[in-house]
Design a binder for these strands. Structure first.
Length: 744
RNA sequence: GCCGCUGUAGCUCAGUGGUAGAGCGCACCCUUGGUAAGGGUGAGGUCGUGGGUUCAAAUCCCACUAGCGGCUCCA
């Protein structure tokens, strides 16, 4: 006799087990019609679970009916989950239909197809001799539309594992066998990867039965091993389409099979799908690569190299303004500025540990030509050469091992001095240089903390497929600083760093970011520093993050090996996340570089180092900023703050007078004295997103005035005295206002 | 690095084997105008690079290179 509790708290009693659909019908026929699934809490300790509408409820439960939204309603995440999970099946069926079989009779094998934030994907294995390309998209979309129109029911059936597993094995799809075994809590008989990230695609682990979903009738129509849940029938998907192709590894393991990942998306209605596609187009227009090219903010040149940003004059203004802004904030916080070169000796990075342990993400070492010539002449092999470049001298190894109190330099890395090849490296981080500056003078606890800041340019070898405009590059400038402090000073220094980040984000009006606190993985021993130190530092990070007043996530295992960290993550226009600012506590650098300060006890102590970069990198930050403002920067950041537009060349002389007044006041301004109508000049300036346009004609000249037009306002604002405009725009620039506030 | 797509004028793009195109931009001329493109003329291209097929290649094939979307990685 199930008692069903509804979301409003009311309770309905039933004489016999009921389906979720029947519960919906008992509330109202409209609801039953709109229902596509249910969130059911069977009071079994699992909490509310999203389930099929056909689920039979045989005991007391709480239930919420999930409905497909109407045309102009936003779909709930649960509704989208059901729709997209179901659409993944339909797309997979459509792809199998469209591609058919190869000469050997093999068909596309399905692996794993979950919903995602913006749609869904299905990983599949395409047999030899078959090819899936975007040329098939029209056919696939047409087939998807047909299947949706056919309105076939999603039919769930279960089979005991003892029947289902042999059946799956006989079907020859090892990916599904693997999924099934994982669902049953069995070790995989087919996947031999080192990494295990089980896609829980079927059922809760340990379940003795496997569930299948047929799109229609079992045995007659297409079906798939699947945990569910799904919408009742294909028409309830509304609208779905295939979006793009990518490659993905089975279980994300690059040593494993390479699969084709087909992305698609689905919405309750065609209108919402169309709106989403329009939104994607709009987002593309905000893309910093598009805007950066159109507004000439930066340039990437094939002849210079991948992932290397050339800052054009306009982009350089934005960067310089940001740097000036942050430098002033640093001064307030007691930082001192330093400059260091772009390269350092290999030995320096062997000391810091950057080389060779991170050599895959660094540019190759720079070795003296003479040394190379000699080695080549002596017939030295490449492998041997590499070995000698990466080797560590006995002296260095001894020092590091002693200070670390363990063997951190492996014995086979240690080479006699006459075998080592010396060289230099493009710096992958600024900290070794800064550590050397700290170490170059004695320090008392009274001087601590020592805060060394530098806009330091670093170079990293990023994989070519990962490069992206300004957001992922191979050479970038960090607004870097290293705070050498005592352990007691850590909390206050972290607070200081975060307040800096907050100041920056506030001034720029950036509210859409998340904060990630990276903590150590309790099960790993890869970390340096004592457990107590870690506990304290992690607490400092968590406390500081909490004091920010924004939500943050604690992420165990995300700490660096040398200490916990706080990262600021923002999304770009197409939803990809990028890490910007970071604050990291480091227990490693002190002993690696044998740094010390003299404490009140007149004995040397190791400083703790805090790495911090509130912007992260100037390149990435500016890229994100371009998208944030869609190229329409606040006046203080705009490369061109104001443009004078004379009505005709009869007013050019007065226009130049106005320009001179603006320039003298330090406003970045220009004049468009081209032989054009003012309408055309406005159009051009509007496209360039210039904050203020000053239209000047005979009327204005007579009154020593300017007619003002502000960006984003569809009409002129009227005339005002030139002097007044100059003083107001100056005030706006100095206040770093986000809005364009100068009005007559 | 891997999978798919793309590379034609400064920019955005059309061009499916037979004499390289458009719009914008640029230069010059006309126009002298009051708030999102006035009109005309002209310059500008080894069709990403290298090979191949063909009487003939921007177009078909192969390799490379760069960009885009993902995957993997990210001190």
């Amino acid at each position: 006799m199930p008692q069903i509790t509804l979301p409003d708290g009311s309770v309905k009693s039933f004489d016999a087990p009921v389906t979720a659909h029947a519960v919906a019908a008992s509330i109202g026929t409209g609801l039953a019609k709109a229902a596509i699934g249910a969130k059911i809490d069977l009071n079994d300790g699992q909490g509310p679970q999203l389930r099929d509408l056909s689920t039979l409820i045989d005991r007391d439960a709480s239930i919420a009916i999930i409905t497909a939204p109407r045309a102009n309603q936003a779909a709930t995440p649960d509704a989208l989950f059901l729709i997209r999970h179901s659409a993944a099946h339909v797309m997979a069926e459509a792809i199998q239909d469209v591609l058919g079989a190869n000469e050997k009779g093999e068909r596309v094998l399905l692996a794993y197809g979950p919903p995602t934030e913006t749609g869904f994907f299905y990983d599949m294995y395409i047999p030899e001799g078959m090819k899936l390309s975007s040329d098939h998209f029209d056919a696939i979309n047409a087939r998807i539309a047909e299947i949706i129109k056919e309105d076939r029911p999603f039919t769930r059936y279960e089979q005991p594992a003892s029947d289902a597993l042999p059946r799956l094995k006989s079907e020859g799809n090892k990916y599904k066998v693997d999924n099934a075994e994982r669902a049953l809590g069995l070790p995989s008989s087919v996947y031999k990867g080192a990494k295990a990230a089980p896609p829980d695609a079927t059922r809760a682990p340990g379940s003795p039965v496997l569930s299948f979903y047929a799109t229609g009738q079992p045995g007659k129509n297409w079906e798939d091993l699947c945990r569910g849940p799904h919408v009742p029938s294909t028409s309830r998907i509304g609208a779905a389409r295939v979006m793009s192709l990518a490659s993905a590894y089975w279980h994300g393991d690059e040593n494993s099979d390479r699969l084709i990942r087909v992305y698609g998306t689905a919405f309750p209605t065609q209108e919402q799908l169309d709106a989403y596609l329009v939104q994607l187009e709009e987002a593309k227009k905000r893309d910093h690569r598009t805007i950066g090219k159109a507004l000439r903010l930066f340039h990437i040149d094939e002849d210079v190299g991948q992932g290397l940003i050339l800052w054009t004059p306009k982009g350089s203004i934005i960067r310089k303004e940001l740097q000036t802004f942050i430098a002033a904030e640093l001064k307030k916080q007691g930082y001192t500025e330093v400059f260091t070169p772009h390269i350092g000796s290999l030995e320096l990075y062997k000391t810091s540990g950057h080389f060779p342990y991170y050599k895959d993400s660094q540019f190759a070492p720079i070795v003296e030509r003479n040394a190379l010539d000699e080695l080549c002449a002596s017939g030295c092999s490449c492998a041997e050469m590499l070995n000698r470049v990466e080797g560590v001298s006995e002296r260095l190894a001894r020092g590091l091992n002693e200070r670390a109190r363990k063997q951190i330099i492996a014995k086979d890395r240690i080479l006699p001095d006459d075998q080592l090849i010396e060289g230099f490296m493009l710096k992958p981080m600024n900290c070794p240089h800064h550590a050397k500056i700290f170490g170059s003078a004695p320090h008392s606890y009274r001087d601590m903390p020592v805060r060394l800041a530098e806009f330091g340019t670093v170079y990293r070898w990023e994989q070519s497929g990962e490069l992206n405009g300004m957001t992922r590059v191979r050479g970038f400038t960090q607004d870097d600083a290293h705070l050498f402090c005592t352990e007691d000073q850590i909390p206050a220094e972290i607070q200081g760093c975060l307040s800096l980040v907050k100041t920056i984000f506030n001034v720029l009006g950036m509210k859409d970011y998340r904060v990630r606190v990276g903590l150590r993985d309790p099960d790993s021993n890869k970390y340096t520093g004592s457990a107590e130190s870690w506990d304290k530092a992690e607490k400092s990070c968590i406390d500081a993050a909490a004091s920010l007043g924004v939500s943050f996530s604690k992420e165990p295992g995300e700490a660096a090996f040398y200490g916990p960290k706080i990262d600021f993550v923002v999304k770009d226009v197409i939803g990809r996340e990028w890490q910007l600012g970071t604050v990291q506590v480091d227990y490693q650098m002190g002993f690696r570089f044998d740094l010390s300060y003299i404490g009140p006890d007149n004995r040397p102590h190791r400083p703790v180092v805090i790495h911090r970069a509130p912007f992260g990198s100037m390149e990435r930050f500016c890229g994100v900023l371009i998208e944030h403002f869609a190229g329409a920067f606040p006046t203080w950041l705009s490369p061109e703050q104001c443009r004078v537009l004379p009505i005709s060349d009869k007013s050019n002389d007065y226009g130049h007078k106005v320009l001179a007044a603006l320039t003298a006041a330090g406003v970045r301004a220009s004049i468009d004295d081209a032989n054009e109508r003012v309408q055309a000049k406005i159009k051009v300036a509007a496209d360039e997103k210039i904050p203020y346009l000053l239209i000047v004609g005979p009327r204005d000249a007579e009154n020593n005035a300017v007619s003002v037009r502000a960006r984003g306002v569809e009409k002129d604002l009227g005339a005002m005295p030139l002097d007044t405009f100059v003083s107001r725009i100056k005030a706006e620039i100095e206040s770093k206002g986000i809005e364009l506030g100068v009005r007559p």
